[in-house]
């Protein structure tokens, strides 16, 4: 430092350094505001779920629970639909994710191989579906033609090909699996299938984890396919049940006149905080397991093609 003082430092450089300092302050100030805006609503739901509903409604809950109670959670336990929905969602997510990985990852590998005859045309067959589709009604009629309407299968199989995921995995295979591995395997008399299972898959944990997470989150959170293709309430996933509790009941709150409607609304009000916690926490818990892969090359591949 003393040395710096001795030599006359150019004025400009000093300016640069103070502007960097100012930027640092502004950066962290903005970051703090963003954190509050993101965290507070979620924190509010957590404390509201442990509070007396009337205290929440009267605006007494701001920073910690008021009139601590577990009534919201107790009410959840008594609501059979939620647990049926929970079971269904777990099944759809588990089976759907397994099918999704089993279908998309091998296809991505095949398309990543330059020596695949017809690679361009086959890629086009996949990519075209990203930008053009038959639309709601023709797809609905197709599902009915396959006798899949209102079945377990419709929730896990027909829409399991996700071209975006295939592109991500394909780019991963192209950039991360060295080509001479295949040459070497061939010399040892190893076929494509064995090579894929024994060499490629064990090297692909990162992309398998990331795609697995994406697919699982997608299944856990979706309600569209259930809304369109399911009729039987016993097959409803959690999200459709949530829709009734969180949205349909709230929307009707002004119009509900009968006593039954009032009771339904009161119950919904009691449960709406706890049900958010119970339905959202499990899928959030998956995230830390794959977090370490996120800032790596896995995602960048998607847009590089």
């Amino acid at each position: 430092m003393e040395v710096m003082e001795a030599t006359p430092a150019p004025a400009r450089q000093v300016n640069v350094r103070s502007s960097d300092k100012a930027m640092e302050v502004v950066l962290y100030a903005i970051a703090a505001v963003i954190l509050i805006v993101l965290i507070y609503p979620l924190y509010f739901i957590v404390i509201a779920s442990f509070s007396d509903p009337s205290g929440v409604a009267n605006g007494q809950v701001w920073f910690y629970p008021q009139g601590f109670t577990l009534d919201g959670y107790r009410e959840l336990l008594r609501h059979p639909n939620i647990w049926v929905g929970y079971r269904n969602t777990i099944l759809y997510t588990a089976v759907g994710t397994a099918i999704g990985l089993a279908v998309n990852v091998p296809a991505a590998y095949a398309l990543s191989r330059k020596d695949l005859f017809g690679r361009k045309a086959l890629s086009l067959l996949f990519i075209f579906t990203m930008f053009f589709n038959g639309g709601l009604i023709p797809t609905f009629l197709t599902i009915r033609d396959f006798h899949m309407y209102n079945t377990f299968l419709v929730m896990v199989l027909p829409f399991s090909v996700i071209v975006y995921d295939i592109i991500v995995a394909r780019t991963f295979f192209q950039t991360s699996i060295p080509g001479d591995l295949w040459e070497a395997a061939q010399i040892d008399g190893c076929g494509n299938l064995r090579y894929f299972a024994r060499v490629v898959l064990p090297l692909s944990k990162a992309v398998l984890s990331v795609l697995g997470l994406w697919i699982a989150v997608g299944y856990w959170n979706s309600y569209f396919n259930a809304l369109i293709y399911l009729k039987n309430p016993d097959l409803y996933p959690l999200q459709l049940i949530l829709r009734n509790i969180l949205i349909t009941n709230q929307m009707q709150s002004g119009m509900g006149s009968g006593e039954a409607a009032q009771i339904a609304l009161r119950l919904a009000n009691m449960m709406r905080y706890s049900v958010i916690i119970v339905s959202t926490v499990p899928i959030m818990c998956l995230y830390p397991f794959v977090q370490k892969y996120f800032n790596q090359g896995v995602m960048i591949g998607a847009v590089k093609e």
Partner: peptide, 14 residues
Amino acid sequence: PAAALLLCFAYKPM
């Protein structure tokens, strides 16, 4: 598998 699913559930609706 992926190609067959696309033919059934993406191209048939088209």
